[in-house]
Write a protein that binds this DNA or RNA. Structure first.
Lengths: 209, 209
DNA sequence: TTTATTATTGACTGATCGATCAGTAAACAA
DNA sequence: TTGTTTACTGATCGATCAGTCAATAATAAA
């Protein structure tokens, strides 16, 4: 029978418990900052058993990234599939913003991987960016976005607005009155981009500073 | 005499040797990934002596970050201090961009400190941001920058353009033909910002998407 | 049943961690 | 000169690190 065994010996259940606990800890403290003991305590799985299932600490770390980041990329809405429609700044930014907001653990995992030199954290990263670049090009062809900006550079700028904020929102909240208003930031970022990306029509010199 | 003593007892020289070695190591491996032994070996200063001068490992880490901020403030006093001048997008972004480009250790340190959030935040960091906020406000008062964007949020956007790029330039180079053109990115970021930040004059509806 | 496989644990290893201590020597003040 | 402060070192501390091993128990295969 396919009955799930709750207690006692259950390899799959053990592995999942370890992965879930390790993902949280690695995302929070990074590789060097997390000990096998911590993972053992958080998961309730004895330390030797973790080694039995996952090998050394490095291998467990790799397994966690594969598991956590891949399921993250898998659920990412229209990765490359229906890439026919041109990029709309508001909907695109809102979509990415909301999605990353709900998956901050994976954002942190990717951040750790970058600093620890394990870049790219996931092979699909480049593919994801390329899909956005394609939509930008399409928008430029239809004169929805000014043409003098390189699509790759522009994709970097769009992502930076979202990701950098999510990584530093607390810092800027501290600088402000202490309040963090994510929605207001997003709206203003969109406002800046919509004007900054609009094609120059005839004159309207936009008053150089 | 004010002669510099090269060998033997020299507290200042010792501190600098530690700071320089620790900055490189912390930038490369983060706080948890760097041991006092590593720093001792790299600097040639005995481990107990490092503790004598800097206290515990945490305190040394703080000293390194503070030292980094100090170096920046020393080079750009008007960006750090009470500069009266309003913010100019081009000069501000270019200066920060060039500085961080030459001091990538600084970029990595910022990245580590962000992820390893368990360290005390330095008031100097918030002070740097606040100084930029002040310049933004001044520019808004003089109608050099549109007024509907919150200065704190805007400072986040400006910094994101620079820092996110420097942290991910290789990734985007990979997406492009493989070439990384930092200067082109900077120019285009400035171009986007200058148009996006210009005050709306009368009409010139900027064609909503 | 017997046998083989595998999940699981307690006890343990050598290495490395951050930090301390007593002690030495140089610089300085009296 | 003497006394005090400070820079600096060798030896070493207890704690924790990742990882191992023999032994046990549960399951699956024969």
């Amino acid at each position: 029978m396919g009955e799930e065994q709750v207690r006692g010996r259950n390899a799959e259940r053990t592995r999942m418990a370890v992965l879930e606990a390790a993902e949280v800890l690695f995302a929070d403290r990074g590789f060097s900052g997390t000990s096998m003991r911590d993972i053992s305590c958080a998961s309730g799985i004895s330390q030797p058993l973790i080694h039995h299932h996952f090998g050394c600490k490095q291998d467990l770390y790799i397994a966690v990234r594969r598991w956590g980041i891949h399921k993250f990329a898998e659920r990412f809405p229209d990765l490359a599939g229906e890439g026919d429609h041109p990029l709309d700044v508001r909907s695109e930014l809102t979509r990415i913003f909301d999605y990353l907001m709900e998956n901050q653990a994976c954002v942190k995992l990717i951040g750790w991987a970058r600093l620890e030199g394990n870049h790219p954290a996931l092979p699909e990263e480049a593919e994801l960016t390329r899909a956005m670049v394609k939509r930008i090009e399409r928008a430029q062809q239809r004169d929805l976005i000014r043409r003098d900006l390189d699509p790759v550079n522009l994709s970097a700028m769009l992502l930076s607005f979202v990701i950098y904020w999510l990584e530093n929102r607390l810092h800027f909240g501290e600088v402000a009155a202490g309040k963090v208003d994510d929605r207001a930031y997003l709206e203003q970022a969109i406002a800046l981009l919509e004007r900054g990306l609009a094609p120059a029509i005839g004159e309207c010199p936009a008053k150089r500073i």
